[in-house]
Amino acid sequence: MKRHDIYTLPILIWLSLFFTIPLSITVIMSFMSSTPYGGVTLPFTVGNYVEIMKGRILAILWRTIRISALSTLITLGLSLPVSFFMATSKWKNLLLMATIIPFWTNFIIRIFAWIFLLGNNGMLNNILIQLGIVKNPITFLYNSWAVVVVIVYTYLPYMILPIYSAMEKFDFSMIDAAMDLGATKIRAIFKVMFPSIKGGITAGILFVFIPALGSYAIPELVGGRDSVMLGNLIAWEITTARNWPYATALSNILFVSTALALFLYLKIQGSDGK
């Protein structure tokens, strides 16, 4: 063993204990058969994947991707101007703190705060009723849009922070230089600033899109009767349906599609830069 290897040993042990082994278990389980009372049994089969490919869950998979992609796009759209403003502001550190502080509150409590704001008996509805604009409360929550709004809110800092840190390193006088050389402001931003903050954008997209795909609590709390996402389906298959092989097959599909998306994205990003 080389002298340097000793330093990688803890991370190696950590990864194999908490990543490789659990992952292998789910892969093996997904190829086994289910028993009526939970657990797995032999023989090995590909039936679980065949069942999934029959298209029964494609609607949920598609909804999961749609909600996650839309949320990622919105967070990106919000984060670019915000990060730009932060990076060029005098109050950099103060704004950075303001972005991070909501993190100190528990994630579930922040979801409940949205129920407090937009719920049937929430602040907005009560104001509308007081003003006489509506008679009965409007149901803002409990649909897929509510899920998107709360995902955007929850993951916004994960997008802002990497983009901000990329922008902060960017020398803004380069834009002036580009404009002095005849570029329009838009062109200067796209041709000069974007390439150098691309890393931050990539990181932000990954930080938001991947956890959004695995959402469970958000659709559970603010989603409605028709906004089940893949995470909720997996939980249901493991607990009530007691179909562990099917559930593990589903989670493997989630894992593989995430990894694939990541790989493709990084590949495209990489070839762009050359």
Binding site: I115, G119, N120, N121, G122, T139, Y142, E220, L221, G223, G224, R225
Partner: peptide, 22 residues
Amino acid sequence: WKENIVKFDAEFYGKGIASGEY
């Protein structure tokens, strides 16, 4: 029934009805 309900809820309904949400 599903058309008329807002969601299937086994966690929050107690708090929900107490707060006027449901």
